[in-house]
Write a protein that binds this DNA or RNA. Sequence first.
RNA 1: GCGCGCGUAGCUCAGUUGGUUAGAGUACUUGCUCGACACGCAAGGGGUCGGAGGUUCGAAUCCUCCCGCGCGCACCA
Length: 736
Amino acid sequence: MKLDFSQPYDFKKIEDGIYRKWEESGYFNPDKLPGKRKKVFTMVMAPPNITGSLHMGHALEYTLSDALARYKRMQGYKTLWLPGTDHAGIATQNAVEKELKKEGLFRHQLGREKFLEKVWAWREKYGHIIIQQLKSLGVSADWSRLRFTMDQDYQKAVAEAFIHYYEKGWIYRGERTINWCSRCATSLSDLEIEYKEEDGKFYYIKYGPLTLGTARPETKLGDTALAVNPKDKRYKKYVGKEIEIQSVDPSIPREAEPKLKTIKIKVIADPAADPEFGTGVIKVTPAHDIADFEIWQRHPEVPITQVIGPNGRMSEKAGIRYRDLKVVEARKQIVEDMQKLGLLEKIEEYKHNVAHCYRCGTMIEPMLSQQWFLKMPELAKLAIYNVKKGKIKFHPKRWEKVYFDWLKNIKDWCISRQIWWGHRLPVWQHDPICIPKSGGENNFEDCALWQASLNEPKCRKCLAGFHQSEDVLDTWFSSALWPFAALGWPMKTGDLDKFYPTDVLMNDRGIINLWDARMIFSGLEFMGKIPFRVLSVHATVLTREGQRMSKSLGTGIDPMELIAKYGRDAVRFAIIWQAMGGQDIRWSEDALIAGKKFLNKIWNASRFVFSQSQSPDKIDFAQKPRPQTNDDKKIMANFQKNKKIISRRLESYEFGPALRVFYDFFWHDFCDQYLESSKKQVQDPKLKSNTGRILIYILGNSLKILHPFLPHITEAIASEKFGLKNNLLIAESWPR
RNA sequence: GCGCGCGUAGCUCAGUUGGUUAGAGUACUUGCUCGACACGCAAGGGGUCGGAGGUUCGAAUCCUCCCGCGCGCACCA
């Protein structure tokens, strides 16, 4: 490629082709970087989902990471930025199911194996799109080390981790009321649900002598007790007694008029009942409410009735009157029935937060089911201790609080999911568990084994045969191993030796607990070392109006469109320009204009400088010229000063301020002032050649400093016009 | 309910431990096509720094309260 400085700056002509040069050089691979490079710098990329296409959040994260990686590379570090993609269990499965639906297919019609074939085919087809998009941003990751969280080796790592926990006795199987998404047909952890405030109704229902309030009257069919606060004097006389109440008879067919039925229900005392709220009486529905389940654990004598099925419809046990109705339909029906029978005292309007699936938005149905759990107390302790001791630094520090708050009140992690796409649990089991329900933790040893210990394919207790668990692991269980599993763990690889622990992890605040915390305790547990030294939590990109960018809301901005319109470097400029710290960014198109103008400025300043030296060869700019005039002294000193500030800013992950400082120097000090005075200086034969050297020196070194931010234009100019030790700017050393 | 963050020029944002006429980008006004660049240069208009108190010789910067916006967490029956 030949640069034509007689033409105005055109990003299309300049940027294309640069990326290929870098890839061909091999410099993204730390082992192929020139020079001695004793110091090592490592980052792992937060692996994007294979379902995804690049959004502004990615563009921000990867641009900042890339700037850091390039800076460190130039600083002489053996720099590894390890890329990958995530299989993203539920998200990907949903995407493929949607695709199938277009053909009128449903995953159960295909069966597990066929369905997984479809997912792999889908991954082949779409999984690389995001990689291409990353490349068009200029991401300097080592693609030769690209990993996928469902690679063969990675699957081994996940199984190894599971077995490790299993042998420690930290994995158990239990029957619990968990968050259930009836659309995805799987359990979800607490971190995988989102609350939305919704208008609802609050129903006051007569229970014999008592009245209680509830937002979910349909779960009344699964009530097995009433609870009051032990200190509540109003209800003291009922505690421990069974009371007789009139209730709706669920055995009357739906077509017929509702009838009353007399049932008995026990009143228990439990601190979970708040005397201040409602009437102070609550119904206990352990199978469909997580808080009620916890009450049940304190009162195991209370029976459990499951009246809602995994499909989100009322079950057999709800009685023929309600059976098969969707939850909301059943609610309508039972309210109507109770009204007719005079059981409903009053209805109030109220607002409350309703849980939804974070992947598909369906309302969460708490549901009793058998799941696998990982005990968290010891792991949480490790994670807290190491951050408290400062082994891992959070930037900005305030995010530590979010991390500590979660870990301090940690609950055991529900790690099983009832989907097909993911890491299948390496356990062989029979269903249901034959140990009697105790409410506590089930001793599952007799009911499940991991493969290696499976010499007796029958349960010692009930003699039932074993089969491999149908469940897969929570996606985050495998992501938690990323910093070391991506480097080859559990094998003892050279990479693991060289590159673990990593230096910096950069990501959005939304996954501090979902991912970062889990990497921290996993790293400590399996490697005995923290997975990264610094967690840099970057801003979230919002719309100009301050809304969340989202495809479904139509508020998203596609970075690829911006790149097509403004070019890669201009988009990077706009991102970094606005990345002023942890503060959220209200995306402003003005920054793109500023970027465009700045690139034009660089181009034209270069044109001027090169017009001063007609050397046909590549120009040497390594020699530091001696300043002669006052203007010479000023520009040389200013360059030194600003270079130092940039380094300091970058070391503390202040990308925006770093860029702005140098923008100011380059535009005003160098172009507006020195370039202008140089025009006079070159008239003087005594100053002419030295002035030329200063122009070259400042320009060449400015391109170096701007390279982490604007890699394409700087590389294009420098690698063509300047004599570089390794032919490319990317492998040059940072100015001294 | 608890916690966190934010409210500074029309718009998007800086403003490091309190200290001279509060800055940048963008937009706007005027002049300038002089051999890097009109995606430019030079000059300029525009802010009682959300509000009210307080500390101080001095506060956008520290303290208290209030108002507005955003986010996170909570056993929300």
